[in-house]
Amino acid sequence: MSQGIVENLINELMRLPGIGRKTAQRLCFFILSMPEEDARDIAKAIIELKEKARFCQVCFNIAEDDECEICRDKKRDSKKICVVEEPSNLAVIERTGYRGLYHVLLGALSPLDGITPERLKIGELIERVKDNNNNVEEVIIATNPNTKGEVTARYIGGILKPLGLRVTRIAYGLPIGGDIEFADEVTMAKAMEGRREL
């Protein structure tokens, strides 16, 4: 019977990304050795997340209420909106010290997968930018530096630029800590294009 409970948790944990049987087994036995209170806290946090998490009605970040904490924060620079593909991208940008607002597209354009502009939160972004009450001056497009992300950025840029806003795209280039000799020609060409004066 106890083997059934253990096996059950291992199987459930294996449903998570990047977790194979061995990792699931390790996590399972770690949970077993934890104080009951700690294990309950983990379970409670997962249930709470599933029950309360929803999309912010303004920026489509994950929120507990109608608006997320970032949109509610009046100290943030509301003149700048950073556009990202997924809510998980926000955390990395937050760590850079950026204090503007965000807009999450919930994906990127992909004709082969049938992901059209209508299936993304692009219309909502345009409405948000057009709304004079928001006083948006700059839209920073931080979609992924791959083909889908680039096409999405160019599509959004094509719509927003005629509105007289400053529309910028995050820079391409080499990762810090890498060696130039390992860079491919496309990345290097982009780094050369985006060079700046010292």
Binding site: P111, L112, D184, V186
Partner: peptide, 24 residues
């Protein structure tokens, strides 16, 4: 190893759409 990146094609929305159709 890249032989030809065809990176300009990827940056043009209309080319990207045409090629996506061809690939499908």
């Amino acid at each position: 190893d890249i032989i030809q990146p065809f990176s300009h094609v990827r940056e043009d929305i209309n080319d990207f759409l045409r090629l996506s159709h061809i690939i499908e």
